[in-house]
Design a binder for these strands. Structure first.
Lengths: 224, 224, 224, 224
DNA sequence: AATGAATGAGGGTTCATTCAT
DNA sequence: AATGAATGAACCCTCATTCAT
């Protein structure tokens, strides 16, 4: 029985090696410029072997991206695990996303491909499903916290948690894209500090989502 | 002297014909799938001639996109020209962007390419500069209105007009991207109406940008 | 000694299972499109095992084809076994081939591959020999009948039985190929009914092969 | 006006050069083994240029084959042009085909690909049509002669000229295939001289197609 | 005997761009 | 100015076969 398990482990390990090699190459070159030959070289495997483990280049790309989702999920999880007020947890959430963006820019970029199904030409249904499930975890986690905020009277009731989650993610994402693509343009030509905008936007949005009561407390926390 | 002018006019006209043909083809197929052959066919010109007027396929693509910017600019201009309160003008602005998104989806999509320099491989500096200048007009217009809002005490003073402009554009853009790419996913799997989210987000953001006074008036418009 | 025999039997059975699976796949897809993976799947065996029993894909293909030869042989045999006049037996022979063509088109098609050594890239000498031997049985059977016809004064003496056999087979085969490849072309564009041509050609050839006496009797069978 | 014509001539010449190169390579290697790279090398042109003149490898293959059809047509034409009796013309026809087979074996082989549309994967409709038309000329020519034979009372009336044409071609073709594929097998293992069979078969078939009168004259040509 | 992971060569086709005319 | 013929680089995926276990 040990044999089967060992085989299984080796297989998983091989899959991992391929993923490592692909990560390296995709980070350096992006989906389009990277070639399966390069990845095979980096993995020290034949090209054919790559296709034993991943059905297409795009599947492999999404395989790497999924690691990014895992990382982001872990960061979100840690942000929620610290016992803190719900308000503080919400802030941790935002900060976690920003931190992910700063420390895992390469993974962040891969999300674009996942977001835009127009670019998917060869993604297998399995991989699509896998990514979707993986991605769903993120939204579930976020929604859970936001629901707690609503229940505690911290967050407005006229917006569903998923709506708030969407707004928060959407707002951050939009600014992050600009940072990633054109930070220098904004800074040098327009004189806009996008890093600051990102924080500011999150801050404003949080305020907007709070109930009036919560906002009142927030603004005069040291009264009394 | 008439000769030179006629030549100039003919040249401009030819450039325009190419743009028309490119518009048709790019709208149908997108940047990657469209070929210079198809565009040449549509323009009833030889492929070589295309390169006399545009330095690369990507330049041509951005040439088409610029028309989209012009259209959006005109829509913005009309939104400001109606003599109305500044507040109403701000709302018109938002609505104009949404309307542009709805009625000129093809152009809207092209903006992504412009936004993402990772996709630029062959864009000439001239075209880049041209687009930037063209684009700048949009921001100047928006900033002007927002400055007026600040001056009138309608909008908060702790955010620069350009910052507000960025936030407004950024928020809309992020949601529009989702509508364009994954509207069905959000609607069917998550149960989220992104069209509604777009309106809601703009509304919330506007409120956030108002001064407290302005917001107070807004919320009780029928006092007196 | 029983052990060895059982092993032998199991081996033969395994070989047979592989053949069944290959038959199914080759019939559906043809030599080129079919893959060893598919056959292995169909046989519920690993790809490696296939190579324990057949040296190459082409060998396996010829293995299947040989079954077709066996079937044809049986049909020929039955055609000869009915106690009938030699003339009638000859006709039965022709009809048997036509019937084989009609009812076992898949096998018939495989004969082409066997016929055309240009297509053989990986056929083992053993398989080649096996097919040749198997094939030889057909010719021997046919030659035997024809020899009887010659002996009886039914068939001309200026042609060797093997020559007649070759002519008969060759004539039918050529028309069958056209039926298989281009029946519709001939019917729709040329207005030629190849099925009828096949019968007619066989009929004419038979007449040609008969001695004058035999032909005379044939034409006036009801004299006296 | 000279310019256009010269261009046209050069283009035709280039097409011809490609055909020459392709002929050389296809003759040596066959359709499957030959590569477009080799042909491009042989033509001293880039691979891309090949595709300016021929839509696919298979089209190019059929382009070469068409030359073979032209050659055969010319040989048939010459066979009919000699003022001779219709009977002699018919014999010339058969001999012409055999001579083509002997002197242009490479072209003959290419006919198989044309015959078997199952092998056509990338043939353009234009090329298909061109080949069909070209091929049709052969059949028209043959049918014309046969019709003359019927009109003169030389050939049986119970078979349409096209049916006779089919039988003649079919009979020869079948034997030629065997000569091409397995001549040695037949000679060495079976002791059959296929060259002789080819002549014999044609001879027998011709007799079969003659009217009884014509055959009678044929058999006793020196009576009286 | 059976497995199945690994191999690695193999190739037609597209198309943005150039340049001689 | 306009042409359009020529270029040539670029590339994913398949699959028969092998071999260590």
């Amino acid at each position: 029985m040990g044999i089967h398990e060992r085989k299984e482990r080796e297989k998983e390990q091989r899959r991992e090696e391929i993923l490592q090699a692909a990560t390296k190459v995709f980070f350096e070159k992006g989906l389009q410029v990277a070639t399966m030959d390069e990845i095979a070289d980096a993995a020290e495997l034949s090209k054919g072997t790559l296709y034993l483990y991943y059905k297409s280049k795009e599947d492999l790309y999404l395989g790497v991206m999924s690691i990014g989702i895992d990382i982001l999920y872990d960061m979100f999880l840690k942000a929620t695990e610290r016992t803190a007020s719900t308000l503080e947890t919400l802030r941790s959430f935002s900060r976690a996303f920003v931190e992910f963006f700063r420390t895992h820019r390469d993974y962040y970029r891969m999300f674009h491909f996942f977001q835009n199904p127009q670019l998917h030409k060869q993604v297998s249904d399995e991989m699509k499903e896998y990514c979707r499930t993986n991605n769903q975890k993120l939204w579930d986690l976020a929604t859970k916290i936001l629901q707690r905020g609503v229940d505690e009277g911290l967050l407005r009731k006229d917006l569903a948690p998923i709506e708030m989650a969407f707004l928060v993610w959407s707002t951050s994402n939009s600014i992050m894209m600009q940072i990633d693509f054109q930070e220098m343009h904004w800074r040098n030509h327009i004189g806009l500090d996008l890093d600051h905008m990102l924080e500011k936007a999150n801050e404003l949005l949080l305020e907007t989502l709070l109930t009036e009561d919560a906002r009142a407390k927030l603004e005069r926390p040291t009264v009394a």
